[in-house]
């Protein structure tokens, strides 16, 4: 099939749509969980409404992070790409893969951060006195769960800006191998962040919940949260390694 500049444009626009479309799904769900728990918390503890409202807003902002990453990548795919025909199939595959990586990659972290924020709102409503400790724990937990979204962002940037142009004298077999390798890198990190993001969010949510019930055990709870989150992150790191190998070793 003869290559033309439209192939790059098709791939980039498709990637941009997939990116923000899939990325918005759980960003919305996560923020909704937080708002729901916040509203219910205000019903149960109307006196602490300001504190609950603040926790809700900060938690929602943190849960939106991955959605904003997806928006940025999608904007860059629309306005910040290079349409030079020398890019060839390599660039087209890389743009599609960047969209897939960030779109799928924001699903897990947003869901996790949403659960963590929801539990924190519930916990603040139960124990408004320890609201600041709970909110601090929530933010640390949400940051941990967003690390895998940052992996996806890094891979998406590498796919967009570090994939070389297609050499002129290359066999059709090599073109297929390299292009599919780039798409596989996007799928690897995209699906690979789903589990760790959700899992770490569950840890952070439980830790915030328990911080409200047993505030004296804060050091032990936080230690367990960090340890568990680190182990849970390991599979995201495997996916990152595989994605790097697929981008650079082939």
């Amino acid at each position: 099939m003869a290559f033309s500049i439209e192939h790059i444009q098709i791939a980039a626009y498709l990637g941009a749509g997939i990116c923000v479309g899939i990325g918005a799904v759980t960003t919305g769900i996560g923020s909704g969980i937080i708002a729901g728990e916040g509203a219910y918390g205000i019903v149960k503890q109307p006196k602490a409404n300001e504190q609950i409202f603040r926790t809700m807003l900060i938690g929602q902002a943190a849960a939106q992070t991955a959605g904003i990453f997806a928006l940025v990548i999608s904007m860059l795919l629309i306005y910040g790409r290079s349409d030079a025909p020398e890019g060839g199939w390599f660039k087209a595959a890389a743009y599609l893969a960047a969209g897939l990586a960030m779109g799928l990659g924001s699903v897990g972290p947003s869901l996790g951060a949403g659960y963590a924020g929801g539990q924190a709102c519930k916990s603040v409503a139960r124990m408004p006195k320890h609201g600041n400790a709970i909110m601090g724990n929530m933010l640390i937990g949400q940051a941990l769960s967003q690390t895998s979204a940052i992996f996806a962002l890094v891979v998406a940037f590498l796919l967009m800006y570090s994939v070389p142009n297609q050499p002129a004298d290359i066999s059709i077999g090599r073109i297929i191998v390299k292009s599919v390798a780039l798409i596989a890198a996007g799928l690897s990190i995209g699906f690979g962040t789903l589990g760790p993001g959700t899992g770490i969010g569950y840890v952070a949510g439980k830790a915030s919940d328990m911080m409200g019930r047993f505030p004296n055990e804060k050091p032990k709870i936080m230690r367990t949260m960090f340890l568990g989150a680190a182990v849970s992150e390991s599979t995201a790191i495997y996916s990152l390694v595989v994605a790097f190998l697929l981008i650079f070793a082939l």
Partner: peptide
Amino acid sequence: GAGLCMGMGALGPGIGEGFVAG
């Protein structure tokens, strides 16, 4: 296959380990 294998394969352990830690 390699990309899908690692991507999907990371899904289960990530959620499961997070549940254990929680």
